[in-house]
Design a protein around this nucleic acid. Structure first.
Length: 207
DNA sequence: CACCAGGTTGACC
DNA sequence: GGTCAACATGGT
């Protein structure tokens, strides 16, 4: 692949799908909660859970950290893996009570990523989603859809490999990273099947 | 009824 | 380094 292709693909996706304006959330902490809840789960379910949590005032580190585990479980049940997610959310809330969010998010991108990864339930994608969409720092998020789309253009690799590719070939533009990841998700949902993507418009002239 | 969804973890090789 | 089952509800 030529060095410019990832830029070309971005332009093509933006032109084809229009701006996606991710991540929908009122506050950075809401992004953190959404990042955990959306793991292996449709966003519509996450919207419901977050909406319910808001009604109970739980989209807040202090309130969430002090909430009854069963209460949280009930509110996030619609997102699946609800016992894990509830306890992880509460742990993360406690972390942000001990370490104020503004201070944590002011850390350099590499330190912030490592710190987020140290939290139970935060892996590569969730850490990067938090770094990019909650802390507004340049980290390219890779997910199952990104892997699919890249396979469509003949590139395979694990999480860190693909991330390295994107970050090497693209300028570290936070807003563009946000938009690009969102575009990839919407594009791959639409055109890239889990096994194959024959109808993928990218296959036509990229490569 | 089968399969999938904006993953992570701990065990194992 | 990499693979894999377990985790669980809701939609098509």
């Amino acid at each position: 692949m030529k060095p410019r292709n990832l830029v070309d693909i971005y332009d093509k996706l933006l032109h084809e799908l229009g701006p996606q304006e991710w991540w929908p959330a009122d506050t950075p902490f809401e992004v953190v909660i959404g990042a955990i809840l959306t793991q292996q789960t449709r966003w519509t379910n996450v919207e419901k859970a977050i909406s319910d949590m808001k009604e109970h005032g739980l989209v807040d580190p202090h309130n969430l950290a002090n909430a009854e585990p069963e209460h949280i479980e009930g509110l996030v049940r619609c997102c699946g893996f609800y016992r894990q997610k509830a306890s992880r959310l509460r742990n993360i809330a406690r972390f942000f009570v001990d370490n104020p969010l503004d201070d944590v998010f002011a850390l350099p991108v590499g330190e912030l990523r490592a710190l987020m990864l140290s939290l139970q339930g935060v892996g590569n994608e969730t850490a990067d989603s938090i770094v990019l969409y909650a802390a507004d720092k340049p980290k390219f998020v890779i997910d199952a859809y990104t892997t699919r789309m890249m396979r469509c253009v003949g590139i395979e690799g694990n999480y860190m490999h693909l991330q390295q590719l994107f970050e090497e070939e693209l300028p570290p533009d936070v807003e563009m990273f946000k938009e690009y990841h969102a575009l990839i998700v919407e594009y791959a949902k639409k055109y890239c099947g889990k096994k194959r993507c024959d109808t993928c418009p990218l296959m036509q002239d990229v490569n």
